[in-house]
Design a protein around this nucleic acid. Structure first.
Length: 554
RNA sequence: GCGCCUGUAGCUCAGCUGGAUAGAGCAACGGACUUCUAAUCCGUUGGCCGAGAGUUCGAAUCCCUCCAGGCGCACCA
């Protein structure tokens, strides 16, 4: 609907230019908004004002020229008005709102699905936590943002693949194996000074105990260099399975788990580095190899092969991103904790050296979560083993409330997550507000059926009975749903969906309290039933993208 | 010291890429259940958009300078 209007305005502007009413100016895109004040119509455009500053003419005069040259072959516009400094306000024909309602009822769960992605292949890589411990609340936010972004992009026409990168080749894993070995010895009676860089959580002990139960004390005498890799393999496997289980229960799924070790097979990393060296992106200082990331705006060059001959994490990451592009993705999206932001320039440098555009890799930073309990901060650290796990959050506040909470803020803003507030089933918790609206509508439809009025088909109602201002507002809001999705997808801003949902649920609750759906008047009741069913559809569709349940009863 | 993020109502946050009178939720106060679910609704109170300059018809939004908070600045990941 919005797009049609944009096209009409664009035509009018072209007509004006051809008639010489306007100088030949560049108009990149036409802005259309829904005015806050309903008296200003259904849609408003500021084109005239934009053009005025370029053409150095009176904006109201330009608006008038556009208005006079506006053709409306389909007859969708009821009224056009020039207002304020030069706004063009449009009131649309009622037919059009009727059409919106019909679209929703016809398309049902497909309503809002778009083709803006045009089937482009997108990969979203997220979570990617080292399997050195259970996921905690900090990972949870990134998990939800990534999951919902992937859902959103699928719904808007992209071919999406979700990936988890397992950093299983570095020092951290070695420390994990050592930690398990030390606990193993300790459990078998040795006195151990636990090293600083080892993991202390109870889950380590559990793994050590399991090894003892299965294989006894034979590793006490074996040499450490052989035991540690074996232990870290076992521990990594156990922990990764646990992570997958937690994610699944959190409603987060992946298409691929990519192991860092894969990159090293058949000299993958070193071959890539030599080829980059031949191209002049990498140089040696005699002891180490450096990537010239400064060529692409990084503040200093970065080491890829250390003095000791070991590749850095960055070296593997270059190979990983090359691998991603080689798999045919048009757009890569990485979701990182905001504490990694300093890493962005070097990765962008790397993909540009590989011949891609900086824009082909989007990086979304997710700010860290401050965990609170009744307003008091809870300290967390994986190494010390003091943290609140994702599992505990799931048990305590539930999947729906937890997910919704993480989606209510822009991902780059800091988030306080208060466990006590999140688990309250009260109005401090917006997820229930939205779910309640859905359950209420289901209840109305059930009640209507009990009273002998089954949900009518759109063809069997008279939409012109919907004359209340709230009804018009509801329909307009629903007409905006696809536009909202498009905006959220293009800007990669997932939080827009929760704000939209809160607003739609609010308008519905307000309508519900003011008007009865089931009235003495059967034709009116039928029309209203269809209207609220449309609201139910939109709520359900949006909640599905968020991975939040849309209950029929509460 | 340098870089990134943030600063909007008492609290938690939106503000759709420069537009019309800056919005919501919570908290506070006053109302609405014999009526399709009161996990709801209606109303009132509450603002120098961190500060200062600049760009223009027009700035919470863009540029510059400060101030405050968070996070980074490894041959860790």
């Amino acid at each position: 609907m919005k797009n049609k209007l944009v096209a009409l305005i664009a035509n009018a502007v072209t007509a004006c230019t051809q008639k010489g009413l306007l100088p030949d100016v560049e108009l990149s895109h036409i802005e259309i908004e829904v005015p806050a004040n309903p008296e200003h119509g259904d849609y408003a455009s500021n084109v005239a004002m934009i053009l005025a500053s370029q053409a150095k003419q009176n904006p109201r005069k330009i608006a008038q020229a556009i208005q006079e040259n506006l053709t409306d072959p389909e007859g969708i516009i009821e009224k056009t008005q020039i207002a304020g400094p030069g706004f063009l306000n449009f009131r649309m024909k009622d037919d059009l709102w009727r059409k919106t309602l019909q679209d929703i009822l016809n398309q049902k769960e497909k309503y809002g699905c778009l083709d803006v992605g045009q089937g482009k292949k997108v990969q979203v890589e997220f979570v990617s936590a080292n399997p050195t411990g259970p996921l905690h609340i900090g990972h949870a936010r990134g998990a939800v943002v990534g999951d919902v972004l992937a859902n959103l992009l699928s719904a808007t026409g992209y071919a999406v693949s979700r990936e988890y990168y397992i950093n299983d080749a570095g020092n951290q894993m070695n420390n994990l194996g050592k930690s398990v070995l030390y606990r193993y010895r300790e459990l078998l009676g040795e006195k151990i000074e636990f090293p600083e860089n080892c993991y202390r959580g109870d889950y380590i002990k559990d793994i050590s105990a399991a090894i003892i139960q299965k294989e006894g004390n034979r590793y006490l005498t074996e040499n450490e260099e052989e035991t540690v890799p074996y232990f870290n393999g076992i521990a990594g496997g156990v922990i990764l399975e646990e992570i997958k289980r937690d994610l699944k229960d959190f409603g987060v799924t992946f298409d691929f788990y990519f192991s860092e070790k894969e990159l090293y097979k058949e000299n993958g990393v070193s071959d890539l580095l030599s080829s980059l060296q031949e191209q002049g992106f990498i140089y040696s200082d005699g002891e180490t190899l450096w990537f010239k990331t400064t060529d692409f705006g990084d503040e200093k060059d970065r080491v890829v092969i250390r003095k000791n001959g070991e590749p850095t994490y960055f070296a593997a990451d270059i190979a990983y991103h090359k691998n991603k592009f080689a798999r045919g993705f048009d757009i890569l999206i990485d979701i990182w904790g905001a504490d990694h932001h300093g890493y962005m320039p070097r990765l962008w440098a790397a993909i540009q050296a590989l011949g891609h555009r900086k824009d082909d890799l989007k990086i979304i930073l997710v700010q860290l979560v401050n965990l609170l309990r009744a307003g008091e901060p809870v300290a967390m650290s994986t190494r010390s083993g003091e943290f609140v796990t994702l599992r505990e959050v799931l048990d305590e506040v539930g999947k729906d409330a937890a997910r919704y909470n993480f989606l209510m803020r822009r991902s780059d803003s800091h988030l306080d997550f208060d466990l006590d507030v999140a688990k309250k089933q009260s109005n401090e918790n917006p997820v229930f507000y939205v779910q309640y609206a859905h359950a209420r509508i289901c209840s109305i439809i059930r009640m209507a059926e009990e009273r002998g009025m089954a949900l009518p088909a759109f063809e069997n109602i008279n939409p012109s009975r919907l004359i209340e201002p709230e009804e018009r507002t509801l329909i307009k809001m629903m007409a905006r749903y696809p536009e909202m999705l498009e905006g959220a997808a293009k800007s990669l801003e997932v939080h827009r969906m929760t704000f939209y949902l809160n607003e739609l649920a609010g308008v519905f609750h307000s309508y519900y309290n003011k008007n009865k759906v089931m009235t003495e008047d059967a034709a009116l009741s039928a029309a209203r039933l269809v209207l609220v069913d449309a609201v139910r559809i939109v709520l359900a569709n949006a909640l599905k993208i968020l991975g939040v349940n849309a209950p029929e009863k509460m």
